Amino acid sequence: MNIGILSYKFVNLNHNTLWKWKQLYHNWMKSAELQILTASEPLSLEEEYAMQKSWRNDEDKCTFLILSKETFDTTNDELKSLIGDTNLFLQYEDDQNEKVAECEIMIAEKEYRRKKLGWESMLLMLKYGQCILNLNKFVAKINENNENSIYMFKKMNFNEISRSEIFHEVTLERKVDETWTTWLDSQVDLQIESYK
């Protein structure tokens, strides 16, 4: 299903449309800075394409592409409007009887960083996970040098649960409870629409 999550600043489109943008996405992931921030390895175009295909078909992945609404409104061009993506990697923890998602955000286009687009995109993705996917817990694993992302998730009421010296990574989590859901509702209004 092709769906979009709307905001006054951006539009999130689900991963089914990424086929048009595989070259742009591949070029982003050549960036040493983005590789460090996202804990990614460089891939060939063929490897990137295979990975994107598996993400499209896997039931345990939920990805939305982030488009600048301002650019899209003036150009009506999804490719020119694409600025990043947000992901949920779904799993079920049998011992806790919980549906959990590891969450990620990337604003790849530098001129769109530090404008709260990552903040709002992630809040909407968390709301989507809580309302539509019925998740019980979110986890974020972030490079220890990515202070902006660590700060953002802590501001979203995630709690640090561990640090890995081997992977140079901080793990934060947020259980979905009534207090946090009320806070999340006060931050974003989830609007979902179908698109072609």
Rank of each mutant, 00 (worst) to 15 (best):
L90H: 09
V139N: 05
T171I: 03
V11R: 04
N145W: 08
M125R: 03
K9L: 06
F167Y: 14
F158Q: 02
I166T: 15
E165D: 13
F10L: 09
I166P: 00
Y112R: 01
N12D: 07
K53Y: 10
Q187Y: 04
S162C: 13
I166L: 15
M106W: 01
K53E: 14
K20A: 12
I5W: 00
N57E: 15
I3H: 00
E165V: 05
T75W: 04
L13T: 08
L190H: 02
K196E: 11
N12I: 15
F138V: 09
W183P: 05
A32D: 13
A108H: 04
E178P: 01
L18S: 11
K127H: 12
I161Q: 05
Y128G: 07
G84R: 02
T171V: 07
K80N: 06
K137E: 09
Y49Q: 12
E173F: 08
A108I: 03
V170H: 04
C62T: 15
N159Q: 15
I66G: 11
E173V: 03
S186M: 02
R174L: 07
E173I: 06
D189A: 05
N57I: 13
E78D: 07
V100W: 04
L37Q: 10
I142G: 04
I161D: 02
C131W: 07
C131S: 15
T182G: 05
S7R: 07
M29D: 09
S31M: 11
V139E: 15
S68H: 05
L82G: 04
E144Q: 14
T181F: 10
I83C: 07
L172N: 08
A39F: 11
A140H: 01
N16D: 05
I83Y: 02
K80M: 10
M1P: 11
P42Q: 11
T86W: 00
P42D: 08
F64W: 06
Y128T: 10
L88Y: 07
E98P: 01
D77C: 11
N159H: 13
N16G: 06
Q91G: 09
N27S: 09
Y25T: 01
T17V: 15
D95G: 05
L24W: 03
K30G: 10
I192W: 00
F153A: 12
K69T: 05
Y151T: 08
E93L: 13
A108S: 09
W180C: 08
